[in-house]
Nucleic acid binder design. Structure first.
Lengths: 350, 350
DNA sequence: GTTAGCACTCAAATAAAGGGAGTGCTAATA
DNA sequence: TATTAGCACTCCCTTTATTTGAGTGCTAAC
């Protein structure tokens, strides 16, 4: 058996997949023979289909049914799409950027736009920064019982913490503490702040060491928040539009995965860790690291917000998804997000 | 026809509802006659059931089926529950408060705990503050090109904004600006900041009026964020556990409502605007202002976080929900959240 | 007032039948 | 040799019929 596909097989396979993408029904030889540009009889096509089935590109859901693309078949189709030159599409641009200035809102809207645009379920992960360093710390007296600590990280991630205090701090005391914190911690990475450093800090702070503790707690908090990754989803109910997913309990499982987000986080990690990044990745069926999506295809793209902050956009739909449209849309959105980059110092969602 | 229920009718209606809550199946006379403590023949019960049906408390989904409680029947049941003295339940307390300090996380977890605890879909709305006043503003130089504005509102709602600047500000300038902002705006409500005030501010700020604008923008932003209400949901897929909801497309609609959250927001508004607040409200079927939940019951509670910040906790489930458990759990959670009150100055979700 | 008994109803489950799309194979054709 | 027409066969899906059983309403007896 030859592992290469003849031109005609190419053509037929392609036709099968495209037809199936549209209708969602197994496609038979007769249908193809009538709809294809090159005229071939159904019998001929049947023969070729038998071969394609042998090679694993398509299969029958049951005897005497038409053919359906296998995962391998989808893979072929997607790969051949990849090879195509990418087209432009910038209608999204306007929709996206109007009246959004905060990253969180941008991302939420991105998920939404993507969902309505594609009719699939979508997710967008907030960017995570791997190498965080402290940029600036400031303590300010809010009222007699509380001071607020403002912590600015590289990438302008900001975190506040209200700290309860017993006594009112004098301006000089605050100034001194601010000075101490900034000179000691400025530019430090999270990992560099170790116990020794902390002890030294507290010693220098003297009677105000409790405040230092609280501030450091807040710093530690930032990392924690970063760790349980923020993911925005939209259009989960779109999967009901595809009978092959909405039937059994797979719909439940998928929607549950969307709700819990834990599994999506894995997906994001997977995507972000891929070497060939800043590209678009397609997971077909079992290729995705989420069991509940074994009947789905997942298309993801990585975007970069500058200073090493990377996030993921993803689309989850049936295997018979409109890969071409999806990939093009994703590409566009990716570019949009990349472009925001140094548009504004923004507070990522906390 | 007498509109009052006899004791026996009370008892039978109660038994019907409780049985239906457990099984989800229409309950027939024979079942009841066997399961009830007081011994009555099925025929007798049939007669009473016929009366109850006439009065509108129960109905048959079809001829020759058992009886199902009508909305009126559920209402009766709930009302009689309301009358019961409330019992305590504080197992939630520990689950809730461990390692959560930020309101956002608390609320998210509240929704989750509630969902797993009750097996229904849940929602928790972040508290909104109606009468916001400014408490404190501080500008700090982060680096040579950026300063950060920290705005603290009453209720310790904190907001940051990074402002790009051309020149590096001197310490004195910043000090002066801070002084100006605080003396002018401190204690002011949002509504009180009008154009005249803004103009005066800018004038006093002289060449730095742009910074003032940016700060005020950030202040305006807070309100905007407050307006599109933040709602956390959990356990939406729980509705799949109840066949009467998961069947047709009602599941889709409900889950969609959960995803979009727009409709939930209406529900929250409704709850918050109710006079008899700080109580627990129950919407049965059409009573809820959300069409997609016509086959559900919705139980909501209002909690208060001090300083007039009020939010809502809600449970959405089938009409045959375990009202007793739900209301008890809700009550407990409500108390929990109320108790957090002045526990810590926390940043609500932005 | 309560109960036993009986005929009746109707949803849901099961079974049977028919239709139809599609296949594989063989034999004829270009 | 590659293609095509034809045919018997398979198997899913839909429709229709049948059965089953839980439950009711009613009447008559207790």
């Amino acid at each position: 058996m030859n592992t290469e596909l003849s031109d005609r097989q190419h053509m037929i396979l392609r036709a099968i997949i495209q037809n199936y993408l549209e209708t969602g029904e197994p496609v038979g030889s007769r249908t193809l023979s009538k709809s294809m540009e090159v005229k071939l009889s159904s019998a001929t096509i049947r023969n070729e289909m038998a071969d394609l089935e042998d090679m694993g590109y398509i299969f029958q859901p049951h005897t005497s049914a038409g053919r359906i693309p296998s995962d391998k078949g989808y893979r072929f189709y997607v790969d051949s799409l990849m090879a195509d030159k990418e087209q432009e599409l910038n209608e999204l641009k306007n929709v996206m950027l109007e009246k959004t200035d905060k990253i969180e809102r941008v991302l939420k809207q991105a998920a939404k736009v993507l969902a309505t645009n594609t009719n699939y379920a979508t997710m967008v992960s907030a960017p995570v920064n791997r190498r965080n360093t402290l940029k600036f710390i400031q303590l300010s007296q809010v009222d007699s019982e509380q001071i607020v600590a403002v912590i600015v990280m590289s990438g302008n991630v900001i975190k506040n913490k209200i700290i309860d205090v017993d006594e009112e701090f004098s301006n000089e005391t605050l100034l001194k503490l601010n000075m101490l914190l900034n000179t000691t911690l400025n530019g430090m990475s999270i990992e560099a702040i170790n116990l020794g450093l902390i002890a030294r800090l507290k010693e220098q702070a003297g009677i105000h060491s409790k405040v230092i503790s609280d501030v450091l707690d807040a710093v530690a908090d930032i990392i924690q928040v970063e760790e349980d990754m923020e993911i925005y989803t939209s259009g989960a109910t779109n999967i009901f539009k595809y009978p092959e997913l909405s039937d059994n309990q797979s719909a439940q499982e998928i929607i549950h995965a969307f709700e819990e987000k834990q599994q999506l986080a894995e997906l994001v990690s997977e995507t972000l860790s891929g070497e060939e990044n800043h590209g678009i990745q397609v997971y077909i069926g079992d290729e995705a690291p989420v069991k509940s999506m074994k009947d789905c295809s997942v298309v993801t793209a990585t975007y970069e917000l500058g200073e090493g902050m990377r996030g993921t956009i993803g689309i989850i739909g049936p295997k018979r998804m409109d890969y071409e449209h999806v990939m093009r849309t994703l590409k566009t959105l990716q570019n949009e997000l990349d472009a925001i980059n140094h548009k504004e110092g923004s507070t990522p969602p906390s």
